[in-house]
Simulated assay, not measured.
Amino acid sequence: MTESRPHTLFSFGTLMDERVQTALFGRTVPTEPASLAGYTTRPLPITDPAVIAASGLDVHLILERRLGATVEGAVLHLTDQDLAAADAYEVDDYTRRRVVLTSGENTWAYLDAKPLRSAQRIVIVGDSIAYGRCDPHGGWAAHLAAAHIAGNEAEHRVFNLAIPGSTLADVSEQTPALLGPRRPDTLLVAAGINDSALPLTAPQTHGDGPVHIADSLGSLAATALGHNARLVVAGPAWLDEERTRDYEGLRFTRARALALRESIRAWCDENHVDYLDMWEPLREKSELLVDGLHPTPEGHEALYRHLDTVSRRA
Rank of each mutant, 00 (worst) to 15 (best):
A130N: 04
T107W: 01
L57F: 07
T186D: 11
W279G: 05
L231E: 02
R182F: 03
W279S: 01
S263C: 08
E3A: 14
D80W: 05
G26D: 12
A302Y: 04
C134D: 15
H60N: 02
E280S: 11
P30T: 05
E173S: 13
G151W: 09
P164A: 08
L61E: 15
L250T: 01
N106P: 00
T14C: 12
E155K: 01
R117D: 02
E64G: 00
R27W: 02
I62P: 00
F25A: 03
H306M: 00
A141S: 15
R245S: 11
V99L: 03
V290K: 12
Y131I: 01
K285P: 01
Y131H: 15
R183P: 01
G13F: 03
E301H: 12
A142R: 04
P281T: 07
M278V: 11
G139N: 10
A202Y: 09
L250V: 02
E155S: 07
R183C: 08
E248H: 04
E248N: 10
G209D: 13
D87F: 02
D291P: 12
D112M: 04
E18V: 12
R66C: 02
P176A: 06
A113P: 02
L289N: 11
E287F: 03
T175R: 02
G13H: 11
H148C: 05
I62W: 04
V211G: 02
A255E: 15
